[in-house]
Simulated scan of single mutants.
Amino acid sequence: MYLFPILVIAVLLYGLLAKRETRDCRWREKRDPASDQSDWACLHCGATMRGPQSTPPKSCLRA
């Protein structure tokens, strides 16, 4: 009985704190067939960057 409120609080805290730097980012990849790099664009903030294929950026550039 006492465990349930603690579990609910833990789940809420995890949801709020996990992956804060990219929580709202939705990265889309445009591959460059001539190299192993891709152009990445964030649909949320409009940031763009270049990086390795199939590996979305780990941080948002919104700053």
Rank of each mutant, 00 (worst) to 15 (best):
K58Y: 05
I6F: 09
I6T: 11
A41K: 15
A63K: 10
H44E: 15
D39A: 10
Q53G: 01
G46I: 13
L17K: 11
Q37D: 08
L13W: 03
A47D: 15
P5E: 07
R23F: 12
W27G: 04
A10E: 06
A63L: 07
L16W: 12
W40K: 14
K58C: 01
L16I: 08
R23D: 02
L12P: 00
Y2P: 09
T48P: 08
T22N: 15
A34L: 05
H44R: 14
D39V: 13
P52K: 11
C25K: 01
L61P: 00
T22E: 14
P5G: 08
G46D: 03
Y2L: 12
L17F: 12
A41W: 04
G51F: 02
L61M: 11
S59A: 07
H44I: 02
L43F: 07
W27R: 03
Y2T: 10
C25T: 10
W27I: 08
C25F: 06
R20V: 13
A10C: 11
G46N: 01
S38W: 08
S38H: 09
P33G: 04
D32E: 07
L17M: 13
C42E: 14
S35T: 15
I9W: 03
P5K: 08
P52W: 01
W27Y: 09
A41V: 15
D36N: 10
L3Q: 11
P56C: 05
E29C: 02
T55P: 00
W27P: 00
R20G: 09
Q53P: 00
D32H: 03
T22F: 11
F4P: 02
L43A: 15
L16E: 08
W27C: 05
K19I: 06
L16P: 02
Y2F: 06
A18D: 09
S59L: 04
P57D: 04
M49C: 15
